[in-house]
């Protein structure tokens, strides 16, 4: 008779705390909670904008509250983390060949950062116009 009795290990719900790589993955996914909240603040801003000048100015002054400043600082850091992870994985989604050789991943990542810098400066200039 067979003595086989394969043992199945349970995967606990805290698996992502057991390995730094998984933890970073969860932070990457968790960034979406903060970006969701930021989008809701903007959506609320659009709502206040539609209600008239007084309502919109109230929204603007609410953004000056220290809690809002701290929150936005946190969102900025987390959004930048999303940007870094997004760019670092970008080469895996690119299927470009130049003279039969795959395009160097470092070039793809560098291209993203250059575009990011240009876009950021462009937006800052546009808002100041």
């Amino acid at each position: 008779m067979s003595k086989r009795k394969p043992y199945r290990r349970e995967m606990n719900n805290d698996w992502w705390l057991k390995n730094i790589f998984y933890s970073k993955y969860m932070i990457r996914e968790g960034s979406s909670i903060f970006i969701t909240l930021y989008s809701l603040i903007l959506a609320w801003g659009v709502f206040r904008l539609s209600q008239g000048e007084e309502a919109f100015n109230a929204w603007l002054s609410a953004l000056q509250h220290p809690v809002s400043i701290v929150f936005h600082l946190l969102v900025l850091l987390i959004a930048l983390y999303h940007t870094i992870t997004w760019f670092s994985l970008a080469p895996k989604a690119v299927d470009l060949y130049i003279k039969g050789k795959p395009l160097d991943g470092k070039l793809i990542v560098a291209g993203h950062y250059i575009t990011f810098t240009i876009v950021t400066i462009f937006c800052l200039i546009v808002i100041m116009l």
């Binding site: 970006i35 930021y38 903007l42 936005h72 969102v75 900025l76 959004a79 930048l80 999303h82 940007t83 997004w86 760019f87 993203h112 575009t115 990011f116 876009v119 950021t120 937006c123 800052l124």
Partner: peptide
């Protein structure tokens, strides 16, 4: 989000 959210939040 990767390209624009940081500058928008800023």
């Amino acid at each position: 989000t990767a390209f624009l959210t940081p500058v928008m939040v800023l």
